[in-house]
Design a protein around this nucleic acid. Sequence first.
DNA 1: GGACATCTTTACAAAATCTTTATAACTGCA
DNA 2: TGCAGTTATAAAGATTTTGTAAAGATGTCC
Lengths: 225, 225
Amino acid sequence: MNKAEILIIDDEPQIRKLLQINLESNDYKVVQASTGKEGLMLSASHPPDLILLDIGLPDKSGHEILQELREWYNRPIIILSVQDNETDIVSALDNGATDYLTKPFRTGELLARIRSAVKRSQNTENSPVISCGNIEIDLVARIVKRSNEAIKLTSTEYNLLALFAKNEGKVLTHQYLLKEIWGYSYQTETQYLRVFVGTLRKKIEENPNNPQHIITESGVGYRFQ
Amino acid sequence: MNKAEILIIDDEPQIRKLLQINLESNDYKVVQASTGKEGLMLSASHPPDLILLDIGLPDKSGHEILQELREWYNRPIIILSVQDNETDIVSALDNGATDYLTKPFRTGELLARIRSAVKRSQNTENSPVISCGNIEIDLVARIVKRSNEAIKLTSTEYNLLALFAKNEGKVLTHQYLLKEIWGYSYQTETQYLRVFVGTLRKKIEENPNNPQHIITESGVGYRFQ
DNA sequence: GGACATCTTTACAAAATCTTTATAACTGCA
DNA sequence: TGCAGTTATAAAGATTTTGTAAAGATGTCC
């Protein structure tokens, strides 16, 4: 199974270490940033599944980072803070924070809140299995079946297909797809998409030359049905 | 704007009153239940947009209620509890609670967490659809249906139709249409419009020679109805 | 270090779309 | 009726976008 990736943005090395140990032992992949700037860069070049953001950073205020992230990043952001005043909490939540925990936090609770947020954002809570015609996608086990036979997909192929499936029927723009799968800074790399849509079609379509599932919307993007 | 409806399940009348006052003054519609059973019935007969659930109920444990609700209810459930032990919190979150606040809670924070949860859950709701006679335009999914059958439009055709639909009934001048779709420097290319209105009519009109949707306003522009 | 899988990049063919041209049809009016 | 201005349609040409194969680059696992 593919690990969910968590980005920690915190300037205190001890906290980062503590979080890293706890998260890794719970099967998350951990990426770390010690400044807000570094965090923004890391998340843009490779979007994590969730961000743990400390509010008290040295270079930029966590509130600013939160706002900048939310201009394009729509997965969970959990705020960690020594601040326990209501104003901070309310402003963070209203600026798009998914949750807010005050330090010192209880590890078990943090992990539960992370599980809850990740589950919601992967929208695996309602239907862990998405079915579209003869295609079945198990979002929890990350297994894809075509006519009840498991098919082997690379990690990127799977991510792309899962994103399509979660937005069945909608036209997804090139920009959006690239942003979600590769990261904010890849929005112009449309050729990636062509290649990967090509390999996906070979694997899931009856006849890749006349695709029934992944439909091209010329000039705009693709649509899954 | 339509008020979001919140169901309070709590056995303490004072807490219910306090919540009711705060929620109503923030423009929510409030429904109350003093027992778990009543809460289950109310939510089933008229599902609220969000549920505030007290864990310490007299008839059934809040954990049970939560599980029963989650069998079918997938909007936010925020737990309120005097219990501040980690086990309770973790178990509630893992059973599908959206959030968990310990009593006494700060009203401003609770309201912020409610706003945040409602916003997230409304994000995934269905997209707005513009309907004009037998034509349906889903602006989010970027899909156009005629008599419930999807029709294929090119990107420019879609943009033009969407612009028409957003201004149903109004006469849109050639200049305006060209400026919006092609750009400021194309304002004199009226022939483009004739070509594209032509292809659009072929696709959406019953009888393209006698258009019912895209009406020519000679010398001025077009009108959509 | 080498085999293997995967991702990135390049090049070119194929398809779809847009632009332009030509011509026909309509409209209101003298 | 005939004319001028406007609109509609078809189709050829130009351009953009997409699909595919394959070579190079990168990373991973023994």
